[in-house]
Design a protein around this nucleic acid. Structure first.
Length: 413
DNA sequence: TCTGGGGTCCTAGGACCC
DNA sequence: TCTGGGGTCCTAGGACCC
């Protein structure tokens, strides 16, 4: 059944009715980067793994080229499983084999810079979602009557600047543009016009909707909701009961309604570092040493980004995959690597004697920039040591709690 | 398929305050 | 002895995304 009001595709009264949103998604980005570096990989199966070293079998697949996907290798699959399907070129006497490469983020980031520069040039507003994906609001740069040519232009500029192909989706909303870019990958170009969004979604599997993951998809299927069309026709009250606010959210998206404006992402809300052991360990000293390293790493990144943090947390993963998190908030924001280590080790102590496969350290409740807004002008030569407001690690809270704490707290997840 | 790493948002419950 | 309601902050867990 149909709510009946308004045309699909937009939400009246939000000022977003006539937007043109472009979603740009570089195809198999990490694998594409590896090919830039080594053109001999063109046309060959390529698997880029994270958390793995050449010659090892632990870690997981970050990106598999389409040639590798044809043999069943998928993102997030363990390297060991990928090797079962597609051995290394060096190990294969005959038959299909893949080139395995470890993730090289600095190189990929350098390629991504070229893509970002192009996108910044093509739109007023760009929201970078990840290293290989972005939304553009191009409402004032093109028109629905010529938007396909504009989209082709985007693809061409990306290819020229960075040497990679991108799939592009155009729609009046972010969620529809996202799904559109996905439809004809790789090298895709799909335009969904205002008023066509719901129809475009109708036959797609519910899992295609942004925000519907494996868990929600399974539960929806148990409710006999299999396609996005089914979802759009479902009773929002039932969805609300079953899934809370996200239930309503995905219902609206299935109907083509998504009022989110394209906005730059802004500062992060948390920073974290985690790492898995090759083999789970119950050696507490080993765990402590790992946490010390992660703490130092995360603190260094915070300092580099000029971020202070008020919450410090750890994450402990027990086999097979039990995630535990612990966090501690300070009276005020600090930039204090020693304190990150101290608090993280403290929080870890609860898990002494248990077996862990993975550990993480995280800082949250971030505040950015020089300590306060009152110091104006440039900061050349600023050594960053403002003696006043940056609280020492006095645990009692004292009276120097800083003003204006955002109420927002991120979580470990 | 025995599972990497970096994030975001939502929810629920408890502490505490008025 | 049983009893209100609203609000904020914090922690923990879970789903999801790339």
């Amino acid at each position: 059944m149909d709510g009946g009001d308004g045309r699909p595709g937009t939400l009246p009264g939000t000022g977003t009715e006539d937007r043109i949103v472009v979603h740009v998604d570089v195809d198999c980005f990490y694998a594409a980067c590896e090919r830039l570096r080594d053109p001999a990989l063109d046309g060959e199966p390529v698997v880029v793994g994270m958390g793995f070293e050449p010659g090892e079998t632990h870690g997981a697949v970050a990106t598999a080229s389409y040639e590798a996907r044809e043999h069943g290798v998928e993102s997030a699959m363990g390297i060991a499983a990928a090797l079962d399907r597609l051995p290394r070129v060096a190990d294969a006497e005959e038959g299909p084999a893949a080139h395995y490469r470890p993730v090289d983020m600095p190189f990929y980031e350098s390629v991504a810079e070229d893509v970002k520069a192009v996108l910044a040039d093509l739109a007023e507003t760009v929201r970078e979602v990840s290293i290989d994906e972005a939304y553009l609001d191009v409402t004032d740069r093109t028109d629905w009557s010529v938007v396909e040519g504009f989209a082709r232009h985007v693809k061409q500029r990306v290819a020229e600047a960075a040497g990679v192909t991108a799939s592009v989706g155009v729609a009046p909303t972010m969620s529809a543009a996202k799904v559109a870019s996905d439809r004809e990958k790789p090298d895709g170009l799909v335009v969904v016009r205002p008023g066509e969004v719901r129809e475009f979604f109708a036959d797609l599997d519910v899992a295609a909707i942004h925000g519907v993951g494996p868990v929600t998809a399974r539960e929806l299927r148990e409710m006999d909701i299999e396609t996005a069309g089914d979802l759009a026709a479902a009773d929002p009250a039932d969805l609300r009961t079953a899934f809370g606010e996200t239930g309503r959210e995905v219902w609206r998206r299935a109907r083509g309604v998504d009022p989110r404006p394209v906005e730059p992402r802004g500062e992060p809300k948390s920073l974290s570092r985690e790492s898995a052991f090759g083999e789970a360990t119950d050696d507490y000293d080993v765990a402590r040493e790992r946490v010390r390293n992660l703490a130092a790493d995360v603190a260094r990144r915070a300092t580099e980004r000029d971020a202070r943090y008020r919450t410090i947390g750890v994450k402990v993963v027990h086999p097979p995959f039990e995630v535990r998190t612990r966090a501690h908030s300070l009276p005020g924001p600090v930039d204090d690597p020693d304190l990150v280590e101290e608090v993280a080790l403290d929080l870890l102590a609860e898990f002494e004697g248990s077996t862990v496969r993975k550990l993480g350290v995280r800082v949250a409740n971030l505040e950015f920039g020089a300590d306060e807004q009152t110091s104006l002008g440039g900061f050349a030569g600023d050594d960053g040591e403002e003696a006043d407001a940056t609280a020492e690690s006095d645990a009692d809270g004292g009276s120097d709690r800083p003003v204006g704490g955002q109420t927002d707290l991120g979580d470990f997840g």
